[in-house]
């Protein structure tokens, strides 16, 4: 069973001289609860893949199937509704609304979906507690550290119970300690709460939290590796040259 799948997904930017094939017939299937990291050099199409899967952009060719529905063919309004209900985004630059409090930011997708603000705020507070931000729910983003802001963003991504959480370099703007915490949080989101996560990262240590790593190059997937449930630590240590 897959929750999200791309078939022959292709994205071409520009035309003629400036034509860039950002994605070249990518097939990728993601299972529920799976934590997938996408790695690859800059410009290889990672963000493009995420944007297409999240319905932020429309493919040149191919399809994205989410919950059994092809979102490539949807209108802007339909896409908007899918993004609101079925997809959670975590961005590199947190992208919180500076004039709203942490709880208000986290409750945004619910409020946009028509949930009464009071109820939405209540649920946001719960979600913030889950991601470990109990006492800062009334703070504005500029009063929070980067790691805390990203936690708010994760809470916002999760609040509508999305099928798929997309995170484009969620730790790209954080120090290593906060990065580690956010990666651990995402791991928990997939492992304990059963959400599928697709995360772009450059950092092997962050990628190592995933169950599976997809390597991309020049718009194509060149390697797709399960890394969870591997050999014992002994082998690991040995190969690390410690023994």
């Amino acid at each position: 069973m897959t929750i999200a799948e791309t078939r022959g997904l292709t994205k071409i930017y520009g035309a003629g001289e400036t034509r860039v094939v950002a994605l070249d017939h990518v097939d990728l299937a993601i299972e529920p609860g799976e934590f997938v990291a996408v790695m690859g050099p800059s410009g290889c199409g990672k963000s493009t893949l995420l944007n297409l899967m999240g319905g932020l952009d429309t493919p040149t060719e191919g399809s994205v199937v989410l919950d059994g529905r092809d979102i490539a063919a949807m209108s802007d309004d339909e896409l908007t509704s899918v993004r609101r209900k079925r997809i959670g985004f975590v961005f590199q630059f947190f992208n919180l609304i500076p004039v709203l409090t942490a709880a208000e930011n986290a409750s945004l997708p619910l409020v946009l979906d028509g949930v009464p603000p009071k109820e939405a705020l209540g649920r946001a507070e719960e979600m913030l507690a889950k991601v470990g931000l109990t006492h800062r729910s009334g703070s504005r983003p500029d009063q929070l550290s980067g790691g805390q802001q990203q936690r708010v963003a994760v809470a916002r991504a999760l609040i509508t119970d999305p099928a798929l959480v997309l995170a484009d370099e969620p730790t790209g703007n954080l120090d290593s300690r906060s990065s580690e915490e956010i990666a651990g949080l995402l791991r928990q989101v997939s492992g304990e709460w059963g959400r599928a996560i697709l995360m772009v990262t450059h950092d092997p240590r962050i990628a190592a939290h995933a169950d599976r790593i997809v390597f991309m190059r020049d718009g194509r997937i060149v390697d797709d590796t399960r890394i969870a449930n591997s050999d014992s630590a002994r082998d690991a240590m040995e190969r690390a040259g410690l023994l």
Partner: peptide, 10 residues
């Protein structure tokens, strides 16, 4: 952009 991404319509 963020509002649009998390589901605000035009």
């Amino acid at each position: 952009g963020m509002l649009r991404a998390v589901g605000a319509s035009r």
